[in-house]
Computed example of a mutant assay.
Amino acid sequence: MAGIDCGTNSIRLLVADLGEQSATAPLTDVVRRMEIVRLGEGVDETRRLAPAAIERTRRALAGYAAEIAAHGAERVRMCATSASRDAANADEFVAMVEATLGVAPEVVTGDEEARLTFAGAVGGLADIAPAPYLVVDIGGGSTEFVVGVDTVARAVSVDIGCVRMTERHLRADPPTAAQIAAAEHDIAEAVDRALAAVADQPGPAGQPGPPTLVGLAGSVTTVAGIALGLDEYLPERLHHARISYQQVAEVTADLLAMPVARRLRIPVMHPGRADVIAAGALVLRIIMERAGVPSVVASEHDILDGICLSLR
């Protein structure tokens, strides 16, 4: 089976073996790929997907379709999130996907996105971090906040993704102090709303607020890789790595002070992420500040794994 997650900044593929036919049996990765396509470029301002962005996504998707066919995946599910929800011309995107992949993309609701994200993120966490969990998925256009133990209890999505915040505020290279302050204000207001929304009901199973913050997506894992001083991007080192607030704050300050050309020289940096990573790091830092948590557990497993798990 194969799952595709198409977000605002990247499009990702997981071809996996179901293994044992049980709900709790782990997936076995066959192929895991990611391409930066910036589908949501300019959507915050124009509310439309740009033709060049759709074409970049089509080229990546054509490669994924060939990979899926080569491995004989029997079931395929593609989910599209923030950018395609926001766009007035989403029908053009859907038509492109159907022509390229042979299946229609699902522009998932916020509730479904939360369920898939949580299912993918919390697998295997019980042995290393206590539940309940606050899972935050920092995407390109939005950030999802999901609280739960074994399943989702509460969830909310706010429009503070790394691409959106870069385009809206951090336009200079490097960003100015005034731009950073404006971004911090915007992000803090959204984070406070999100935290209030996921905390204003009794905790799952009567438990207190979530003690474990789990961070997903490339902004979090890149910050973790920088904090750990890795010489290259190593998913096995990053998955379930625990990073302190102090480390996140230091990495964020460094990234905000660097021009993009210097960020590109960081060993763990994907070239397509260098211009938006400072905004993603800033979102993570402010979430940790406003939630009052001392550390974040980085996860390489997220909505993409949840999509594949849903095909059982």
Rank of each mutant, 00 (worst) to 15 (best):
218 G>L: 01
166 T>V: 10
33 R>M: 13
96 M>R: 06
123 G>C: 06
283 V>N: 04
264 L>S: 06
114 A>F: 04
103 V>L: 07
296 V>K: 05
107 V>T: 14
200 D>Q: 10
312 R>K: 11
72 G>A: 13
84 S>I: 05
138 I>G: 00
264 L>I: 07
25 A>P: 08
91 D>T: 15
211 P>K: 05
129 A>D: 11
291 A>H: 08
147 V>W: 03
1 M>L: 12
279 A>S: 08
23 A>K: 12
271 P>H: 12
197 A>Q: 10
130 P>K: 10
70 A>M: 05
96 M>Q: 08
115 R>F: 00
19 G>D: 11
54 I>C: 14
9 N>T: 10
102 G>M: 10
120 G>H: 05
206 G>A: 09
300 E>Q: 12
56 R>A: 07
139 G>E: 07
132 P>Y: 11
246 Q>L: 14
92 E>Q: 15
134 L>K: 07
96 M>L: 12
41 E>K: 11
150 D>F: 01
277 I>R: 00
149 V>K: 02
293 V>Y: 09
187 I>D: 01
231 D>T: 15
6 C>T: 12
124 G>P: 02
5 D>N: 02
249 A>T: 11
74 E>D: 15
254 D>R: 14
215 G>A: 03
251 V>P: 02
40 G>Y: 04
184 E>F: 02
144 E>D: 07
303 I>Q: 02
17 D>G: 10
287 I>L: 01
137 D>E: 09
162 C>S: 15
103 V>G: 06
51 P>Q: 07
43 V>H: 00
307 I>W: 02
302 D>V: 06
201 Q>C: 05
40 G>H: 08
94 V>F: 07
80 A>T: 07
269 M>A: 11
41 E>H: 13
136 V>K: 01
284 L>E: 04
64 Y>V: 05
148 G>F: 01
70 A>D: 13
246 Q>R: 14
151 T>G: 13
207 Q>I: 00
54 I>H: 11
209 G>Y: 00
306 G>P: 04
